[in-house]
Amino acid sequence: MPELRCPICGGPVRVDDDALPGELVEHDCGAVLEVYQDGEGRLSLRPFEGVQEDWGE
């Protein structure tokens, strides 16, 4: 299970081995984080920007 860093509090965040870009993770610090692939193709985390105006079904 990869351990990443929360970009808000710097604390450790464990994500599933099969985590996908676009997956959302709630961290203990209260931040909602989005899994993404950085320029090197590694999984990383960034703050989730929230529901956008055109989101829906």
């Binding site: 996908l20 870009p21 676009g22 997956e23 959302l24 899994v35 692939q37």
Partner: peptide
Amino acid sequence: DVARLDEKMLIKELRERARLHLIH
């Protein structure tokens, strides 16, 4: 774009039936 539980369930089912190309 967002991998919710719905998408994860679809991924599992699609992989059982086809070669899956995930496009984020």
